[in-house]
Amino acid sequence: AEDTGLRVELAEEDDGKKSSIALKLWIEDPRKLKGKYRESGAIEFTFDLEKEVPEGVAQEMVESGLFQESDVKAVGKSIRDRVSLIRWRRERAMSAEE
């Protein structure tokens, strides 16, 4: 995978049922963050698997002043990659149950 210096992990155990899940975005290069957030290393947030799109959350982070507009695509992609993996794991678990 291309190295964006951003990594999204689950911030809680996935029970496979809830549509809203806690995620944590790790920022390897703090220079990606804006102003007063430069000393930060991670952003925790909830993501609704049914109602939300990763790019929308990335845009909210930019609008909240966390990231530069130029990083919106990289942030969105990092969230999308993790969300795809969560969905894939859930689908696989469901088909195993059947």
């Binding site: 290393g41 991670a42 947030f45 982070m61 966390l66």
Partner: peptide, 27 residues
Amino acid sequence: SAIAQVVHSAGRRFIVSPVPESRLREQ
């Protein structure tokens, strides 16, 4: 300044955590 900040955006909360000390030492 090792305190998490909470940023609110349209009903969502972003919890911004500081860099762990172990990582600060590496930099």
